[in-house]
């Protein structure tokens, strides 16, 4: 039985992600690490409408009951927990960020908030099918260095101590990409307002 407070956390963040257009009806995923256990959304469940039975608890290292129902992305989540200090993972499909990921190897925010919080977001390429061990390792290694990473044409993975925190990075990235998109409409040269902004490229 999943703790009620834990369920509420998943429910609230899941609903916020859906309402913010950051996932489609059945897309995206959330998980948390509790000790040597992982709690993750059930395969096929809708993030915007999570019920208590939509959450599955399984081992960090090995499978146990309920695992057949867990998300196909369980391997990725486990690999991230074993490779990074993450205690929570938010995976979503932020549309504008995905659009930028198609033409860029890294997203360097131009707005103040994301410059401050994220500095730079690497884009990695999913050479193998989603959920392959190679992809999981590559993603986890990148997340040991950056708190949010884009998978080209797919979506973002963000890590944090809590789901709140990982959600914070995710929504900051999408907001930043929407601003960048709007500057393309205005299409005027930027006036740099950030000190030492060259440093973000090397982040």
């Amino acid at each position: 039985m999943i703790d009620e407070r834990v369920y509420e956390m998943f429910r609230d963040i899941g609903r916020d992600l859906f309402e913010a257009d950051m996932v489609s009806s059945h897309g995206g995923n959330l998980s948390v690490r509790f000790g040597d256990r992982v709690i993750i959304k059930r395969r096929g469940a809708m993030l915007g409408r999570l019920a208590p039975h939509d959450l599955i608890e399984t081992g960090l290292e090995k499978n146990d009951s309920g695992v057949a129902l867990a998300s196909s992305e369980l391997l990725i989540h486990r690999t991230i927990y074993k490779t990074t200090p993450a205690l929570a993972i938010v995976h979503c499909h932020p549309r504008t960020a995905i659009a930028f990921s198609l033409s860029r190897d890294e997203i360097i925010p131009i707005d103040n908030e994301a410059s401050y919080l994220l500095k730079k977001v690497p884009v990695i390429w999913e050479e193998f099918a989603s959920g392959s061990p190679e992809m999981a390792n590559n993603l986890a290694k990148t997340l040991a260095e950056y708190k949010i990473v884009m998978l080209r044409g797919h979506g973002s993975f963000a890590i944090g101590q809590t789901l709140d925190e990982a959600f914070h990075w995710s929504s900051t990235l999408e907001e930043s990409c929407e601003i960048a998109l709007k500057t393309k409409l205005i299409n005027e040269p930027f006036i740099e307002y950030r000190g030492m902004s060259e440093g973000y490229k090397k982040w």
């Binding site: 703790d3 407070r5 834990v6 948390v32 690490r33 509790f34 000790g35 256990r37 205690l87 944090g160 101590q161 809590t162 709140d164 925190e165």
Partner: peptide, 16 residues
């Protein structure tokens, strides 16, 4: 900091 968790929660506390 960075986000509030329940101070009476026991389950999962070891991770933090």
């Amino acid at each position: 900091l960075p986000k509030l968790i329940d101070r009476f929660q026991v389950y999962g506390k070891s991770s933090y």
